[in-house]
């Protein structure tokens, strides 16, 4: 589903003295990863490790300097900041219809959009009364559910979650994670879960990829978390888990 080979991404340094300066900061260094159909891969790393940049490369929002990117389309995305994830001038109906319109064009079909919107709202646990509401009339959890409904409306093969539950409260996080699990099973989706929260990864993912300083330092199955070799990954796990990693 996703195959990245030797991805390198760099950005021009903001504090370059000369206006013609070419000094660049390497954000991703030789990153390779493979995601199979039906996988749920968690990408973990501290702030600034290049997680979101890798997400942008997977989504096609950023072209790498070098390396090969293969991503089976269609792909959808759910972002961390739900408040900027939706157009504030759009109603819930408009937000979901945007994805449905893209799907119609892609598949060359005509959808009954009203029914689809109702069905999707029901899927994410929201009623029909939300259909004409604007984003500012919804809570964080509700808005993130709308974002999930919008992502699913596209009928994607892959959904990328970029810190999608980090900004929600603990109770809502659990609800949303349960919802994501149900949706994954229902539509046989492939998930890429970018986060710095290992608990959500252990709950949802079957594979984990540790990113440190723009490099993949460890890749393992969720069952093999306690046998990882890399020091950084070990320290990260030790700081989160109750039982120390040997």
């Amino acid at each position: 589903m996703i195959n990245l080979q030797n991805i390198n991404v760099s950005f021009r340094k903001g504090n370059t003295k000369s206006i013609f300066g070419k000094e660049r900061q390497q954000v991703l260094k030789d990153v390779s990863m493979n995601v199979e159909e039906g996988d749920c891969v968690g990408i973990i790393g501290e702030s600034g490790s290049g997680k979101s940049t890798l997400g942008c490369v997977i989504c096609g929002l950023l072209k790498p300097d070098s390396g090969k990117v293969y991503v089976k389309k269609p792909i959808s995305v759910v972002f961390q900041d739900y408040s900027t994830s939706v157009d504030p001038r759009f109603t819930v109906n408009d937000i979901i219809i945007e994805s449905l319109t893209v799907r119609e064009r892609r598949d060359g079909i005509k959808l009954n959009k009203d029914n689809e919107v109702y069905r999707l709202l029901e899927l994410v646990g929201l009623g029909q009364e939300y259909i004409l509401r604007y984003p500012h009339e919804l809570s964080g959890g509700q808005l993130q559910r709308i974002c999930i409904a919008r992502a699913v409306a596209l009928q994607p093969r892959i959904i990328l979650f970029d810190e999608a539950i980090s900004s929600l409260d603990a109770h809502t996080q659990v609800q949303v994670m349960d919802l994501l699990r149900q949706i994954k099973l229902k539509y046989s989706l492939t998930y890429v879960f970018i986060t710095h929260d290992l608990t959500s990864v252990t709950y949802l993912c079957n594979k984990v990829l540790f990113l440190y300083n723009g490099q993949v330092v460890e890749t393992c199955n969720i069952d093999g978390l306690r046998t990882i070799k890399n020091e950084y990954a070990k320290n990260l796990l030790n700081s989160i888990m109750d039982v120390p990693v040997k």
């Binding site: 096609g60 269609p74 995305v77 900041d81 994830s85 939706v86 994805s99 596209l154 994607p156």
Partner: peptide
Amino acid sequence: NFILFSRCI
């Protein structure tokens, strides 16, 4: 993000 989402899909 809403623009990035539109571009992504």
